[in-house]
Computed example of a mutant assay.
Amino acid sequence: MREGVMPADPDRAAALELIHRLREVALRLELAVGEFARTAGLHATDVRALIRLLDAERAGVEATPGWLAGQLGMTSQATTAVIHRLEAAGHVERLRSRSDGRSARLQVSDRAVTLGWQFFGPLLERLIATTEALTPDQRAVVGNYLTTVAEAID
């Protein structure tokens, strides 16, 4: 192995190996998202927008166009283009905001949810089975680790 590729400290080397495995998972998920985008006729950014909108719905967050722009790290103009593409494809609905009648909130359509489940359902079922095989303590450790990693990336 080349010098400097793996640290001499065993704890640091083990941590780096875990990070490499996490990167591999992220890459495989990204490839699955890309394949879904290709088969559904969407841009990868469109799929990321749908994912963030579904995350917002699960969290009880009202997803506005401005919120989505922040989540995607895009300008409002670029986000508007994404929203228009998703609306035209029937994947997103623009509804009146519950808190401010002058603004809009975005909601993923039932059609898009069904399409997502058709594609990702088998993968999600395998991931659920893998996760259910863990003990509650193991799930807590993994959950805490993933939360901390996400925060470290931010």
Rank of each mutant, 00 (worst) to 15 (best):
R58F: 11
G60Q: 10
V5N: 00
V113C: 03
R139E: 02
V142E: 06
T45F: 04
I19M: 12
S99Y: 01
A89F: 11
A37D: 13
T75M: 09
G116T: 04
Q71V: 02
F120E: 04
A133T: 03
S97T: 03
V92N: 09
D11P: 00
A59V: 01
H20S: 13
F119T: 08
D55I: 02
T39Q: 15
S97H: 03
Q77S: 14
L95Q: 05
W117Q: 12
T148W: 13
L42W: 10
D55N: 07
S109N: 10
D9Q: 04
D110V: 06
A69D: 11
V47L: 04
T148C: 02
V108H: 06
P7N: 12
L18N: 02
V61W: 14
L123Q: 01
H84E: 15
W67G: 08
I51R: 14
L16C: 01
G34R: 05
T130P: 00
I153A: 11
E62D: 04
L95E: 09
T130C: 06
E87K: 08
T79E: 10
H91Q: 06
L127E: 06
A88D: 12
R52N: 13
W67C: 03
P65M: 08
A26T: 11
Q138T: 05
T130S: 15
A26L: 04
A63V: 10
T79A: 07
L53Y: 13
Q138W: 10
L115I: 06
E93A: 14
P10Q: 05
T147R: 15
G116F: 08
L115E: 13
G90L: 05
L50D: 02
A14H: 03
A59M: 12
G73C: 14
R12T: 11
A26Y: 05
V142C: 07
V33I: 14
T80G: 15
L53G: 10
I128D: 13
A49N: 10
P65F: 08
P10K: 02
R52P: 01
G41W: 10
E35T: 13
V108L: 02
V92E: 06
P136V: 01
A104N: 01
M6G: 01
R139A: 11
A44V: 15
R28P: 00
E87R: 14
D110I: 02
G116V: 04
L86M: 08
V25C: 07
H20N: 04
T148Y: 07
D46G: 09
D11T: 00
R102E: 11
G90R: 00
P136G: 03
D137I: 01
A78R: 14
I19C: 03
I51Q: 09
Q77G: 11
L123P: 00
I83G: 09
T79M: 10
E93N: 07
T75F: 10
A63H: 12
H20Q: 12
T45V: 15
M1N: 08
R94M: 10
D100H: 07
V108A: 02
L86K: 06
A152V: 06
Q77Y: 08
L146H: 03
M74V: 05
T135C: 01
R28N: 02
